[in-house]
């Protein structure tokens, strides 16, 4: 990947800021998401809640499904590949996908290596639970980061934990003396240059979204107030009783995330949220995949 391509890919993520990216499994759902104001959609065969329920091995979606969704909407279309599965990524690049999510939500294909994302022209977003994971993914070529949270649960606690951890680690790096950065790079197992960059800018070098457990407009606004630059919503929309209305409310909540009066209006009468699963009661924590 050339330097210009890398820059353009980071810049596409900048265009997503203060936006909502929604998981969709059919062209019809993609249209609902676009009409509700989603800034992009994530095309997948099953939403995380169903992946979790079905068990087994979860893989990249059928290209036919992805093409159908690309044809249905005019906004950017993303899709997921398994961690380390660079051939699935080659296939998505051939489909001219707008962003690839190398995602812990699918079953990992490689328990050691992530994809060398610098070998691709299309951009990648990756999940992270802390600053070390985020910077390792960026070193591998990711041009956008999201918290892992815990997909398919509707439980926001893990996303909150990951966002707080990341931002508190960024603050620590920002306040260090210059000569302490070498040790910090060693501790976090990341390249020195990226630590230096965080030290100077007090932020990640790429856009950082929240993901994994967002179910309500209040959840979305919570993540924005904690420092997310935008939101991924997976099961939260299409596992609720009124997807179109909830999708619209989440989009508006992300824009008006500091306006409590507006959030009160947006939270009113939008039907049942997804039932959800308490993340302390489940055995498979997807966030533990790919560190």
């Amino acid at each position: 990947m050339t330097e210009i391509r890398q820059k353009l890919n980071k810049e596409l993520a900048q265009m997503f800021k203060r936006g909502v990216i929604m998981d969709v499994t059919t062209p019809e759902q993609a249209k609902i998401a676009e009409d509700a104001g989603a800034c992009a959609v994530m095309a997948l065969e099953r939403i995380p809640a169903d992946i979790r329920a079905a068990g087994g091995v979860s893989r990249m979606s059928d290209p036919k499904l992805i093409k159908g969704i690309q044809a249905a909407v005019s906004i950017p279309v993303m899709a997921k590949v398994r961690i380390g599965h660079f051939v699935e990524a080659q296939i998505l690049e051939a489909l001219e996908i707008d962003y690839i999510d190398e995602s812990e939500v699918l079953t990992p294909a490689d328990d050691v290596y992530h994809i060398d994302k610098t070998q691709f022209k299309v951009p990648f977003v990756c999940g992270a639970r802390n600053l070390g994971e985020a910077l390792r993914r960026i070193a591998e070529g990711a041009t956008m980061i999201r918290t892992k949270g815990e997909a398919g649960t509707g439980d926001i606690m893990q996303a909150v934990r990951h966002m707080r951890t990341m931002n508190s680690e960024i603050r620590q790096i920002a306040y260090m003396r210059g000569d302490e950065l070498y040790e910090a790079a060693k501790q976090l197992q990341v390249p020195y240059d990226l630590i230096r960059c965080v030290h100077e800018s007090s932020r990640l070098p790429v856009v950082n979204f929240a993901a994994g457990g967002v179910a309500t407009p209040a959840d979305a606004a919570l993540m924005m107030q904690l420092g997310a630059e935008g939101i991924f919503v997976g099961s939260g929309i299409f596992k609720s009783s009124n997807p179109a209305k909830r999708a619209e409310a989440v989009v508006q909540a992300v824009t008006s995330y500091q306006d409590a009066k507006m959030l009160a209006e947006l939270s009113e009468d939008i039907g049942e949220a997804m039932v959800g699963i308490n993340t302390e009661e489940i055995s498979t924590l997807m966030a533990e995949r790919g560190k």
Partner: peptide
């Protein structure tokens, strides 16, 4: 810049 459909809706 951003997504025109989103900005338009908002």
């Amino acid at each position: 810049g951003g997504e025109s459909t989103t900005i338009s809706k908002l």
